[in-house]
């Protein structure tokens, strides 16, 4: 990372059930903000808090099991979609959870994919399908906060709306869940956000 300071004095709070959109011009550091919230990039100053506890006092796997960040472009996967979805259940932090393909099939169905989709070769997914799989993979782990970095950018309008509905269901079913997202689709932002956080660069 360059030593250029992207933003400062950002003070945001996300409450239960909220769908916060982070908005701002390209290069202002929206991704960086989300990555910092997930603890994937260090902040030069400041602190991220989760339920009254600073990030620095959380073991990171535990923190990220709750605050999950989805990359804009999912990494290439191998094996079947099902195997790819099951992979994170092998991490120690998710030891208490178990992967059930029925759950995965149900989520995929909400996104308009048949259950045969689970047996597909994960390496041959299109960009949009890979985004769907990444979304399902995160939802199966039932995080508390989802950080979506243009996570539906490659979906067609119809599927994107299905994804929004699915996310809303996820928000409604958990005790205290929240969503923070970055989207270049202005319509999606207007339609889906309960609040918009404008990010402006230093000196902008």
């Amino acid at each position: 990372m360059a030593s250029r300071r992207l933003w400062q004095g950002v003070d945001l709070e996300v409450g239960r059930g909220e769908r916060l959109a982070v908005s701002g011009p390209s290069g202002v550091g929206k991704s960086l903000l989300l990555r910092a919230l997930a603890g994937l990039d260090a902040l030069e100053g400041g602190e991220v808090w989760l339920r009254g506890r600073p990030q620095s006092s959380w073991p990171m796997p535990q923190f990220r099991a709750e605050v999950m960040y989805l990359l804009q472009r999912p990494a290439p996967a191998s094996g079947t979609v099902s195997a790819h979805l099951a992979e994170p259940f092998g991490f120690k932090i998710h030891a208490g959870k178990s992967y059930r393909s029925e759950d995965a099939a149900r989520l995929l169905e909400h996104l308009g994919r048949p259950s045969t989709f689970l047996d597909q070769d994960a390496a041959r997914l299109s960009g949009g399908e890979a985004q769907l799989v990444a979304l399902v993979r995160a939802l199966l782990l039932s995080p508390t906060v989802l950080l979506l970095d243009e996570a539906t950018s490659a979906l067609d309008a119809e599927t994107a709306e299905l994804a929004e509905t699915l996310l809303q269901t996820w928000l409604d079913t958990g005790p205290a869940r929240a969503l923070v997202f970055v989207s270049h689709d202005r319509a999606q932002q207007e339609r889906f956000a309960t609040r918009i956080q404008l990010l402006s660069g230093v000196g902008a």
Partner: peptide, 13 residues
């Protein structure tokens, strides 16, 4: 990088 980071983001050590 993104494969490793993806796993980290999902709670992997």
């Amino acid at each position: 990088r993104s494969a490793v980071e993806e796993r980290l983001a999902l709670g992997a050590t």
